[in-house]
């Protein structure tokens, strides 16, 4: 079988000359996709979503990337267009019936795409800090995560938003903080999965956090879903 082409979304940033808007992506995403047997490519044109969905076999929605070494320029790099772009790509891949993996912001985008909503800055309501930290999660039996890694384990945590109302077509397969924060989702019928943490950072020589399992099998599982879908 052909190697699956995996389209990845990037985030807006300034180039190293601070000259113009650019798109950027952490190397961890492409390393994880390539190591699992996919061919990673970044989508560059926000209006060609249908063509990207036609040529690629699967979609990975990355976390938010807004980045510039100069904080003064950071305003506006994580452009609101990003949300529109991601939603158009999700819609196009859903129409094409192709698998999607959402990571962090990507999982939140999936919930929005299927009719759910988000809760912003939940730490002020709950006192729970989920930015630049680590914690354990509880995993639902029968889920992809449970089959791969077992009941509970450490993950990294880098988000200020969490899922609010869950979309009807989605199921929560992992939670933290006594079930108050959704940490992973699966679609009831379609090959669509999402994770609130960064599994692509839980690989390699310096996994984050070191206590957690190596998440390479999760990416291999997603590439497997893509291959199953290609064989249909």
């Amino acid at each position: 079988m052909k190697k699956p082409i995996i389209l990845i979304t990037g985030g807006r940033a300034y180039d190293r000359h601070f000259h113009g808007l650019s798109l950027t992506l952490n190397k961890t995403y492409t390393a994880a996709v390539a190591a699992a047997g996919g061919i990673p490519l970044l989508a560059l044109d926000p209006e060609s979503y249908d063509e990207y969905a036609a040529m690629a076999d699967g979609l990975v929605l990355s976390g938010s990337q807004g980045f510039s070494p100069d904080p003064k320029l950071n305003t506006g790099t994580e452009h609101t267009d990003r949300n529109v772009d991601d939603q158009k790509l999700i819609t196009a891949f859903r129409k094409a019936g192709k698998p999607i993996m959402g990571i962090c912001l990507g999982m939140q985008q999936l919930n929005v795409s299927f009719g759910g909503d988000l809760q912003i800055n939940f730490k002020y309501d709950s006192g729970i800090e989920h930015m630049m930290t680590k914690h354990t999660i509880e995993v639902a039996e029968g889920s992809i995560l449970h089959n791969l890694f077992g009941t509970g384990f450490y993950i990294n945590s880098r988000h200020n938003l969490k899922l609010g109302k869950l979309a009807d077509e989605l199921v929560i397969t992992a939670t933290s903080d006594n079930g108050t924060v959704a940490e992973a989702i699966e679609h009831k019928d379609l090959p669509i999965i999402g994770f609130q943490w960064h599994p692509e950072r839980m690989r390699g020589d310096f996994p984050e956090p070191p206590e957690g399992p190596d998440m390479t099998p999760l990416f291999e599982h997603f590439i497997g879903m893509v291959k199953d879908n290609m064989a249909k």
Partner: peptide, 9 residues
Amino acid sequence: TGHYIINLD
């Protein structure tokens, strides 16, 4: 982690 970046021009 290192990153890839491309000017949108």
